[in-house]
Design a protein around this nucleic acid. Structure first.
Lengths: 202, 202
DNA sequence: GTTTTTGTTGATCCGCTGTTCAATAATAAT
DNA sequence: ATTATTATTGAACAGCGGATCAACAAAAAC
């Protein structure tokens, strides 16, 4: 059996606790003490494993991003045709996994954090670019040189739906957000069937 | 001549300084001292006029929201037909005014702040609802009962475009975002002319 | 059984920041 | 001139939170 130290366990617990704390406070205005308490350990330990609060935050961000990336990859496996692959990306982006309350809060907070933290910004931009490249690649055979334009539209729609949900207003259920994007894609692909949309909710 | 005290002047200066500071730090992690210094006054004065840091923040938010609201109202005046009014709302939402760097930063930060501050949340939701109601009202005569659905799509697109710009990535110029939304509206209204879109930039 | 490594704690330090307040200056009112 | 009002300052207070560190506990290695 492989000998396993406490380190990876504690790291996971602390990251989970950090995301929990972020959700609870709705911002990065959280104390290491609070995070450590949620993880059931002392303040000192958090510093011991992460060195600083900022590193813990960035680690949490990295965790969320890799989690998301994994979802996309999983969805893409059984999807062969470009159109199917588009749907897979949309499904992963607006999937239930991404709409867990703590996850929503954390994303929102990280978006803002990326404005001042170079680490966070670079991390985010890597994933953003990868997603965009995925979209464009799927769209090329479907809409040719308009791929870039349509990809931006899809990405914006996804982000917009997500943000509106995060802000908690009377936004739509994530199932409907899903439909909204699919609807948009179909129209961009030239298969506009406006009438079938209204009745789709039944 | 109307006697005017220093109060309104200082308030404006402090609010401007606060927005400036938020932009500089990229978050609400700003000190009253910093804000006051930017406004050329002492810490004490900020408290004297606003009572607390939180009140100053909320006042800054209110300022931005009213500024935006004013832009919408102005754009709506010369727009008579529903389709024109839709464009006016889009233009105001994605207008140059809203893309000034400090304004972008401030909005992003306020979005997050609304998660924990009741004042901020209510303030934001009032404006969000008003905008949505405006959209639906314009859309009713154009798409009937689908108005609500389309309004959500437009709102999401606008927010998404804005957020993507705020995150600074390789997002599109705000001129293009404009076109993206107009394109979407036209398609939803059934006037899809996919081919004319690609050549519109010339 | 002793030594080394790993895991863990909590008290302590230090700087920062919101807030208060007494004092002062400047302006207006009488 | 004197009083009252408004405008403004910056020192002082108080609490908080990130970081440090010496000590302790537990397990592994020898």
């Amino acid at each position: 059996m492989p000998k396993v130290g406490m380190e990876p366990i504690r790291r996971k617990e602390l990251i989970a606790a950090a995301i929990e704390a972020i959700h609870a406070r709705g911002s990065l205005d959280i104390t290491i003490r609070d995070i450590a308490a949620r993880a059931g350990v002392s303040q000192g330990l958090a510093h011991h494993y992460f060195g600083s609060k900022d590193r813990l935050i960035v680690a949490s961000m990295r965790f969320l991003l890799s989690q998301f990336s994994k979802q996309v990859r999983l969805g893409l496996i059984p999807a062969a045709k470009p159109r199917e692959r588009l749907s897979a990306i949309v499904s992963a982006s607006l999937g239930e996994e991404q709409f867990r309350p703590e996850v929503v809060s954390a994303w929102l907070v990280f978006y803002v954090h990326a404005q001042k933290s170079t680490d966070a910004r670079q991390l985010l931009s890597v994933y953003t670019r990868r997603l965009r490249s995925n979209l464009v690649h799927c769209l090329k055979p479907l809409v040719g040189e308009r791929a870039s334009f349509v990809a931006e539209g899809i990405a914006a729609l996804i982000d917009g739906i997500y943000i509106r949900h995060a802000l908690g207003g009377d936004a739509l259920h994530f199932r409907d957000g899903h439909r909204l994007v699919e609807d948009y894609i179909d129209q961009q692909l030239g298969f506009a069937q406006a009438d079938s949309v209204a009745s789709a909710s039944a």
